[in-house]
Design a binder for these strands. Sequence first.
DNA 1: ATGATTAGTCAGCAG
DNA 2: CTGCTGACTAATCAT
Lengths: 147, 147
Amino acid sequence: MKTTRELNKLLKKRGIDKDRQKELKQERRTLKNRGYAANCRVKRETEEKTLEKRNDKMRYEMEIKMSEIEEAKKETEQMKRRYCNLNSEIEQLKKEHELYLMKVEEDNATRGQERGLKALLANRTEIKWEKVKEEPVSPISLKTYSI
Amino acid sequence: MKTTRELNKLLKKRGIDKDRQKELKQERRTLKNRGYAANCRVKRETEEKTLEKRNDKMRYEMEIKMSEIEEAKKETEQMKRRYCNLNSEIEQLKKEHELYLMKVEEDNATRGQERGLKALLANRTEIKWEKVKEEPVSPISLKTYSI
DNA sequence: ATGATTAGTCAGCAG
DNA sequence: CTGCTGACTAATCAT
């Protein structure tokens, strides 16, 4: 009996200790869980904010890209205008050259008469020009042969 | 005594009813809260997904913008090349015109001699050309006056 | 009172 | 076991 009672006592004590240990253990676990939960929420919020920031950044870069496109297109338009102007200029030059050619042609036609004269003189072998004297007022001698 | 007991009974019954009512009320509230919480979570997740989708969409559009910029720049480069080519052409035309002018000038210089001859003939008042006859082979008469 | 949100608790999974 | 996360509950805020 005595031993049994003492045994029971010991067992009871151990049980109590076990309960205490479990209780403490659980309490610690709970406490840690509290922290884990808080951490988890903080993490979630952080990620959300990160995502939003990334979004804003993208929107900002998007605007930059838009203006870049605008700029590039503007430059292209400018180049096109300059190209057209140059094209007009080239057309103008070609026309001028053409006109010049026609004018020269005309002159040549006019000069054709002179050339006729020259030819005439050249063919008239019976006519000869000769320098007779070196004097300031030199007489010109023409010898005429009848055909 | 009887009335008191019955009264107590009634009061007790009412108390129980009150507890029940409160209990039921709380239970309903709890149930509703459960739904609210679930709804809240769903809402949060939905927003997160929405944000992410928006992000992906932006990234996609960004790539499109990039290619647009690339295209615009390429077009500008092409225009620049064409512009340069046209510029070369115009330079070439100018040079050719210049060369042509020089050639014409040269011709004129050569022709200067003829012009000299013409002037000579023009100034020599003592020389006169006259058509003497209408016959096919007409003799040319030159009258010479000595100064 | 109703609905939303926050923080704490537990269950359950993953490493 | 430790740490994380989903779901439930109570407390609190806001309408």
